[in-house]
Design a binder for these strands. Sequence first.
DNA 1: ACCTGAACACCGTTCAAGT
DNA 2: ACCTGAACACCGTTCAAGT
Lengths: 236, 236
Amino acid sequence: MVIPAPPWQRPTRKRPVKPPLSRDAIVDAAMGILDGEGLDAVTMRRIAEELNTGPASLYAHVSNKDELHELMYDRVCGEMELPAPDGTNWREPAKQWMRNLHATLARHRDVARVSIAAIPMGPNVLRSGESLLAILRAGGVPDQAASWAMDLFLNYVTTAVYEGSLMADRGGWEHFQERISELNAYFRSLPPAEFPNTAALADTLTAGDGDARFEFGIEVIVAGLAAYAAGVVPPR
Amino acid sequence: MVIPAPPWQRPTRKRPVKPPLSRDAIVDAAMGILDGEGLDAVTMRRIAEELNTGPASLYAHVSNKDELHELMYDRVCGEMELPAPDGTNWREPAKQWMRNLHATLARHRDVARVSIAAIPMGPNVLRSGESLLAILRAGGVPDQAASWAMDLFLNYVTTAVYEGSLMADRGGWEHFQERISELNAYFRSLPPAEFPNTAALADTLTAGDGDARFEFGIEVIVAGLAAYAAGVVPPR
DNA sequence: ACCTGAACACCGTTCAAGT
DNA sequence: ACCTGAACACCGTTCAAGT
């Protein structure tokens, strides 16, 4: 006696009106919304709409919205170029690692926020971290310093990209310029008795675009790590 | 002829059942919810409930939720102790500034998130910034470096506190310890061909509590700023 | 196994109406 | 001027029911 397959396993001739749902298809749709409208627009309901279903259908492939955000973040990290370690000079590839991560995240609006609100651990995130550890260790940075430096590097790049994306979102370049000069005027206008330094440094406080500020930060962090690793500052 | 005052200006004998609404009262209620349940619980509706009104009533005193969050952040910054500048040694007060800001923010759950998502500019935030500029300039740090360093310091402290608050929220200390050892095991279990460094550094990657990691970061940043200011790294 | 509609328990904000 | 109720246009997630 032959038991017939249940109806959902029987092949159907009717060609499907919609492509089948899958984790990848969901992340695809989510990435499209992210790049077009930013992370806040990536809601379960919006993704479902994009895929011509109801939001409940997504939960068969993704356990919740946070997990979906982390899947998106990992996909983005897969786009990062990983600098080769250099035994004679770890500073340059270390800085390049930060620049590459920055550029990759910046291409996708405010995804950076995902890694601020959680600690993503997808395969591409791990590969990226492995690459940084290889760069630092090849240069002789001690293991504990290299390990904690990874956190420091990630935090710095991530928040820098995120702040940049906030600026980019709220109006274009001219709007940004305007905000900066308003801020400058505001600093100048502060009572000099209480805020002598803020008022005096109005120009330097508002100087530099995102890139100049980012480069300052990576110089400081890499120089500091070099000093720390060389034992100028005693580890505790 | 005497024009009578409009009814809402006429004194009333009926003692009010509820205290009158005000910006301060709203921020008070919001702070209570923040300290008890975290920033996500601070919603307009929840605050209104606490004050025995409807959410619409709040909008007479506060323009929106983001502004309210910034008012809260500024109030918290008012609790920060500001280290005195020292002309002979800026490193120590600079580090102490970071520790003090860290401690202050950490006392209030995940408020730190407010200053990640926006750039608060309330009076107490400005006073705190002024204090850091005074410390750095007294030590001879050049103006541009001091200005950009303020951003760097703020970013570092803020994200450190926020990550700490995420850890603290998701279960207590034993739960945290457990997560750490799971992470350690996970790093060890990674395929050594692809993840040699991550696997080898499992112990150092998961070593150190929040304080040790925080201290590492401030040492690196301050050492780096010193190197930068001394011209070891050429400014661009 | 996979998908669905409907519901639950929330949001921030607006707006006409009341005092 | 200040406060209110009701509504608008959303959320994430669950759950019983369908195929």
